[in-house]
């Protein structure tokens, strides 16, 4: 049985709490991905990122990802926390934490989750530069 913890919040994300949340006596390997706000994109200085979510659908798509990962690999727990609102450089935008008896499942499921999240979950980010702003991936 896999435990899920899917969450969207405007409050800062807490890595230690997320990791503690997926640990269990049955688990031997935990893989965690932490996505943070970089200070530049293609050489342009980033001031901040603004994240917006279609929250109900985003939660449902994140839950789908977790369920699909648990169907592919033997997992104990999968946590996906995503932040919304205005984030400064260095702030954490997303945390994915996966525990399993063995590390291979944890690594694969964590990678699958972040890759799929970026393709399917209705969350958008606007990069704000000193001289303009852009919705990421919006235009060809």
């Amino acid at each position: 049985m896999t435990t899920y913890d899917i969450h969207i919040s405007a409050a800062p994300l807490d890595v230690a709490q997320c990791i503690a949340g997926v640990m269990s006596p049955q688990s031997g390997g935990i893989d965690i991905f932490v996505g943070t706000v970089r200070d530049s994109t293609k050489g342009r200085k980033v001031l901040r990122l603004e994240f917006e979510a279609y929250e109900a659908m985003a939660l449902s798509e994140m839950q789908k990802i977790a369920g699909s990962a648990a169907a592919q690999w033997p997992l104990h727990a999968m946590l996906i926390h995503h932040r919304t609102g205005a984030l400064q450089v260095g702030d954490i935008a997303v945390i994915i934490a996966v525990s399993a008896a063995h590390r291979d499942a944890a690594f694969r499921a964590c990678r699958y989750a972040i890759d799929t999240l970026k393709q399917t979950v209705p969350i958008w980010k606007k990069e704000v530069f000193e001289d303009g702003e852009i919705w990421v991936a919006a235009h060809p």
Binding site: G35, Y54, M57, S60, I114, V121, P122, W124, K125
Partner: peptide, 25 residues
């Protein structure tokens, strides 16, 4: 709250949303 196919029918009362290219994470 679900991605729709182009031949799906829309009924009054449905919650419809435009989803531009996503960029979470």
């Amino acid at each position: 709250g679900k991605y729709a196919n182009i031949d799906d029918h829309i009924s009054p009362g449905d919650e419809v949303a435009i989803i531009p290219p996503v960029s979470g994470g």
